[in-house]
């Protein structure tokens, strides 16, 4: 709802537009809903008999050590790639926004490339690069690859926060005796923190559900959750997968809701 236009008569949307919108939402949410619903249905006793509500698939998920192992792997990869991407991305955003150096414009453009580059190309190039550098494929290479593509998102969100940052705040801190390090931690960081946080969150969710790039850089024996699900599907669709997917859905949804809850917000002094 657009707050500014509230109360003022606006041109009515044509019926066709409303229908299109409804259709788009149906396309997105009906399959999701089906996935969730099926995760709660027990095996049918035969043709014609209705499925019964059950938590049996969830029990199976939680007793499946392979699934739990890959979940743990995904969380681990997500954690370290988020840390890496956030630190590098924040530093890069500061450099891009604050300093003038030759090639800065080019670099600023390049930042956006991973957002539009076909993932398969990124995955393939990453694989070739790791082989060339003789980096053993495994969790380490997955983390490196995830950092590579998610760093762009962190740079973009932190840069947005830095844009319009009142430089005199940092000068004031220096003036009051703060060393450059103290200026960063006492003034700059608390003020760009919302940007850093949303960048980090984006990095985590991207890493957590990435399939393609992980697939290329995983090597043998390292399974993240998306890879695990894919390999399970190869042996037929089990409702275990529905249950697992529902859990992932709830987890990412909860994560986003928690951090993007209506914020009290840090207002800036004008």
């Amino acid at each position: 709802m657009s707050g500014a236009a509230w109360g003022r008569p606006r041109p009515k949307a044509p019926v066709a537009a409303k229908a299109m919108t409804a259709f788009a939402f149906l396309l997105i949410y009906v399959p999701l809903a089906a996935l969730v619903v099926y995760s709660f249905l027990g095996p049918s006793n035969g043709p014609g008999t209705p499925d019964a509500g059950t938590l049996v698939w969830y029990e199976k998920v939680f007793s499946n050590t392979q699934i739990l192992g890959s979940l743990y792997a995904s969380l681990w990869v997500g954690l370290w790639s988020t840390v890496g991407a956030t630190v590098i991305g924040t530093a890069a955003a500061l450099a891009l926004e604050r300093t003038r150096f030759p090639g800065r414009g080019v670099l600023e453009g390049i930042v956006h490339v991973p957002l539009i580059m076909p993932e398969i190309v990124l995955g393939l190039s990453m694989l070739m690069w790791f082989v060339l550098l003789r980096i053993t494929l495994g969790y380490f290479s997955i983390i490196l690859a995830h950092i590579t593509f998610s760093v762009s998102y962190v740079i973009i969100t932190v840069k947005a926060r830095l844009h319009g940052f009142d430089d005199s705040l940092e000068e004031a801190a220096r003036d009051l005796g703060a060393s450059p390090w103290q200026v960063f931690w006492r003034v700059t960081f608390p003020l760009i923190w919302p940007g850093v946080l949303s960048g980090a969150l984006m990095a985590f969710t991207l890493s957590f559900d990435d399939f393609l790039i992980t697939f290329f850089t995983a090597g043998v024996g390292s399974d993240t959750l998306p890879l695990k699900i894919y390999s399970m599907i190869k042996f037929g669709v089990s409702r275990e997968i529905n249950a697992l997917s529902t859990l992932m859905l709830v987890f990412t949804f909860a994560l986003v809701m928690f951090f993007f809850r209506p914020s009290k917000g840090v207002k800036t002094v004008t």
Partner: peptide, 20 residues
């Protein structure tokens, strides 16, 4: 000397108070 090593203090035009 850098600013943080001078015993001078400044009142900025738009105050530059720390909003957080």
């Amino acid at each position: 000397l850098p600013a943080n090593q001078r015993r001078f203090n400044m009142v900025f035009q738009r105050y530059a108070l720390f909003p957080h």
